[in-house]
Structure formats: structure tokens, C-alpha cells
């Protein structure tokens, strides 16, 4: 399921791209899964067809989707390792009312600190 939130500062094509990439990487969309046509998805989300087409083409460039004459399908990729997903799940459970953006910022900051410590 894709959700477009008008209050989100990310432009609609970015919201589609991010949510689709997450669905594919966590394995909710299996390799070979046929995605809705650009027209169908754009109609459901009340967006211009070009917006959805841009998200699809950028995901293709990222190596997550492939298109041919019959439509757009999810490409065979290495999903997130189970270990990473379990750690993420534990991290989410430990968060007390933190937003997703704050949680990601915290991971990014700690990631940077750990990398800097490793290079010293």
C-alpha cells in the first residue's frame, strides 16, 4: 500500500519512491511482482501520470524495478538481512514516542560517530 500525505514536505514522487523501495527491500513485494500501471497508480493517488512514471523510472535506475512491454515488475534483489530487520524491530520497540524522522536521525548520528571512532 502506498500513501500520499499532502502534509509531508517530500514531493509526491519522492514519497512513492521511498515507500516502494522500502516495500521491496523488506520483501513485502516479491521479485517478479507486477506493479500497477502508471495510469492506475496515478488515478488512485490523484496524481499526474508523469509523477508516478518518474518514481518508477528512478526506482529502475536504482535497480529495484524492471520494465518491459508487459509492465513494470519488481527486480530480484538482496533483501535486508534478517539480522538487520530484527535489530531495527528491537530499536523501534525501544523508542518512546520518537518520530520516524527522529529515529532515523539518531541512527545516522550514531553511525557517523561509530565510523569516526573506527577510523581513529
Amino acid at each position: 500500500m502506498i500513501t500520499i500525505d499532502e502534509s509531508d514536505p517530500t514531493p509526491p514522487f519522492g514519497q512513492i519512491r521511498r515507500q516502494l523501495a522500502d516495500e521491496i527491500r523488506v520483501g513485502n513485494l516479491a521479485p517478479g511482482h507486477k506493479l500497477p500501471s502508471v495510469r492506475q497508480l496515478a488515478g488512485d493517488l490523484r496524481l499526474a501520470a508523469g509523477t508516478v512514471a518518474r518514481a518508477y523510472s528512478e526506482l529502475e535506475a536504482d535497480g529495484l524495478l524492471e520494465s518491459n512491454r508487459t509492465g513494470t515488475r519488481v527486480k530480484q534483489i538482496d533483501a535486508f538481512p534478517t539480522q538487520a530487520r530484527e535489530a531495527a524491530r528491537a530499536y523501534i520497540a525501544s523508542l518512546n514516542g520518537l518520530t520516524l524522522e527522529d529515529a532515523i536521525r539518531a541512527v545516522r548520528a550514531e553511525w557517523k560517530t561509530t565510523e569516526e571512532a573506527a577510523t581513529r
Partner: peptide, 17 residues
């Protein structure tokens, strides 16, 4: 005709109909 809706968020399934 489409069902008129005015909500701030819209959703779509990722299955081809």
C-alpha cells in the same frame, strides 16, 4: 465517475487490477 474525496492523504494498492 470517480468517488469524490477530499482527504489530505490518498492510498493505493500495489496490485494491478
Amino acid at each position: 465517475p470517480a468517488f469524490p474525496e477530499e482527504s489530505a492523504s490518498r492510498t493505493a494498492d500495489l496490485t494491478r487490477r
